[in-house]
């Protein structure tokens, strides 16, 4: 063995002055960071801008193409709802999946090492963006209704009640939550977006066909088909207590349960 004197390293005793423990990061700050993150990329910005743009385009289309007697607020509201049902869930999906697909999670989950807090903040932002988007879209629809009525030369018809209005917002919020759930479950942008279209459109069509051809399914549908029960919200004021119960039951199996499974996976998964 070596007999050379192993030069004992002087452990540098340059201890930094002890620092005070920093204050924990408040939840409000995480929410505002997440809000900023949904605007600060070109894609995120245009996705949010498209809410307004699509509302304007749809409103213009209604004015141009709807028959004169259909120029009512309900027509505008129904038309605007269609692009919103596509764009809002995508916003919710990307807020989650970009952490994995763009790998920003490496930084996000290191700066805030509690994934639950970040997910909650994202949920708050998604819901906030959803409600704000719907209010904006309905505002644009209202302007369209005024403009359309003036062009046609009739008095504007305001045929959406407060209850219907709340139902339509809830309908879109549920769509956003479905997007959020799929984002958490798949953690991959393309997969979750495709999943949303399968979930909302393909599955919806299949159950419709099934219900019109199979008696047993038609009877079971209100208790098993979330698209169907959710659709009742577009006419919320005529929903019965049983309808609400059906919405809750199907929502539990189609939304809450898979969301819970996805969250467990998010908390346990490796961020690479």
């Amino acid at each position: 063995m070596s007999t050379t004197t192993v030069e004992t390293d002087l452990v540098t005793a340059v201890a930094r002055p002890a620092r005070p423990t920093p204050a924990p990061i408040p939840m409000s700050r995480i929410v505002s960071v997440e809000l900023r993150k949904s605007f600060d990329t070109r894609s995120g910005f245009w996705l949010l801008a498209s809410v307004g743009i699509l509302a304007v385009l749809t409103t213009a289309a209604v004015i141009l193409f709807a028959p004169d007697d259909q120029i009512t607020y309900d027509t505008f509201g129904a038309a605007i709802g269609i692009p919103m049902a596509v764009i809002l869930p995508v916003i919710a999906i990307l807020s989650i999946t970009s952490e994995w697909s763009q790998r920003t999670g490496l930084t996000s989950f290191t700066l805030v090492p509690h994934r639950g807090r970040i997910i909650r903040a994202k949920l708050a932002v998604a819901l906030g963006v959803g409600v704000a988007s719907m209010l904006l879209a309905f505002g644009i629809g209202a302007l369209g209704n005024l403009l359309g009525a003036a062009i046609v030369g009739v008095d504007p018809v305001w045929d959406i009640t407060g209850g219907d209005f709340a139902g339509l917002i809830l309908f879109q919020i549920l769509n956003m939550l479905i997007g959020f759930m799929l984002g958490v479950l798949f953690r991959n942008s393309a997969g979750a977006i495709v999943g949303y279209f399968v979930y909302g459109f393909v599955l919806g069509t299949i159950t419709q066909v099934l219900a019109s051809t199979q008696d047993w399914f038609e009877r079971a549908q209100p208790w098993v088909d979330f698209n169907y029960t959710q659709g009742a919200l577009t006419d919320a004021t005529s929903m019965t207590g049983e309808n609400w119960l059906q919405l809750a039951v199907t929502g539990f199996f189609w939304l809450a349960l898979p969301l819970a499974i996805g969250l467990v996976a998010v908390f346990r998964s490796e961020v690479k």
């Binding site: 990329t41 070109r42 894609s43 995120g44 970009s98 763009q102 790998r103 920003t104 999670g105 490496l106 930084t107």
Partner: peptide, 8 residues
Amino acid sequence: DASAQHAG
């Protein structure tokens, strides 16, 4: 990983 950033 320096590349793990949102490219946009």
